[in-house]
């Protein structure tokens, strides 16, 4: 073996060892468990082929959680990016207070969504009803946690509150990297603000938009903390997202590790496919522009 490879192995060994034990092995194990009837309570289990996957097709609770998650992801991808980009553009166009605003909008990103969720639960269950009474706003008097129709939006508000700042930072960095002369040139040519944004800024930050959408997609599919703290998946299982469904299946209901693993594989493949398609499509668009 070449000497350089020996040194390389030596330098990579500690990281690779821990990575193999705590990521690679459990990940590959997950594929194998998904083909077994392993129940966490029993020491032995059998290979059952694809029967877990077949069972999933009829699992209404799982399919509902998948659709609920998909709806959440759709809202998040659009709203997160639109709000973050809007904030970034406005902040960059102001002459004063840029740093203060940036600091404030990023602040919720520092907070765990468990604590953030509990704080918002206070807002939804205690502050909203009093506001409704004081100002006569009926919609604030709805059951924002207990009624699944509204609790979807509570989860959405909490998630946006806690995550928009991160994307805003990405977009601000992208906007700052645009050479000032280009904006000046557009101004001289008589373009107004909106025209400048659409024709000059947009093509230059499309790369960051690809990143922004990728980040939204991959994080919102995995949403857990927000739902766990705010509704716990309830009422019933009405707001149960996929990650929580997997967690419950494995560690709360009947410890069906094999079946839960099959669900986890479906989640993995879904994220992989959707982000893969997104990157492929958007990269091609970038080239065209």
């Amino acid at each position: 073996m070449r000497n350089s490879n020996k040194v390389l192995i030596l330098f990579c060994l500690p990281a690779f060892l821990l990575y193999s034990i705590f990521v690679l092995y459990p990940a590959l194990g997950g594929f194998w468990y998904s083909l077994t009837n392993w129940n966490g309570l029993n020491p032995t289990y059998d290979y059952v082929g694809l029967s877990n996957y077949l069972e999933l097709l009829d699992d209404k609770v799982f399919i509902t959680s998948l659709l609920f998650t998909a709806k959440y992801v759709l809202y998040m991808v659009v709203l997160q990016n639109v709000i973050a980009l809007t904030l970034a553009i406005i902040i960059e166009s102001l002459s004063k207070g840029k740093k203060v605003l940036r600091t404030i909008f990023f602040f919720p990103n520092m907070i765990s969504m468990i604590v953030g969720g509990f704080i918002w639960m206070f807002i939804f269950t205690k502050v909203f009803p009093q506001l409704a009474e004081m100002f006569g706003i009926a919609i604030l008097n709805e059951s924002w946690i207990g009624n699944p129709e509204y609790s979807f939006y509570s989860i959405l508000i909490l998630s946006l509150w806690g995550s928009v700042g991160y994307l805003m930072i990405i977009y601000i960095a992208a906007l700052q990297s645009i050479p000032g002369q280009l904006i000046e040139a557009a101004k001289i040519d008589g373009a107004n603000k909106l025209q400048t944004i659409w024709h000059v800024v947009r093509p230059l930050i499309i790369n960051s938009i690809t990143i922004g959408i990728f980040v939204s997609l991959s994080t919102s599919f995995k949403v857990f903390d927000q739902v766990y703290s705010l509704t716990g998946g309830g009422p019933g299982r009405a707001t149960q997202v996929v990650s929580m469904n997997i967690y419950m299946e494995a560690f709360a209901y009947q410890s069906r590790y094999g079946y839960a693993s099959a669900k986890a594989i479906i989640l993995f493949v879904t994220i992989l496919l959707i982000t893969g398609v997104q990157l492929f499509v958007m990269k091609r668009k970038e080239v065209e522009m």
């Binding site: 459990p26 990940a27 997950g30 990650s243 494995a250 693993s261 594989i265 994220i271």
Partner: peptide
């Protein structure tokens, strides 16, 4: 690319 929930059980 692997979500945490896919390695959680293992």
């Amino acid at each position: 690319l692997i979500p945490f929930h896919s390695i959680m059980i293992g």
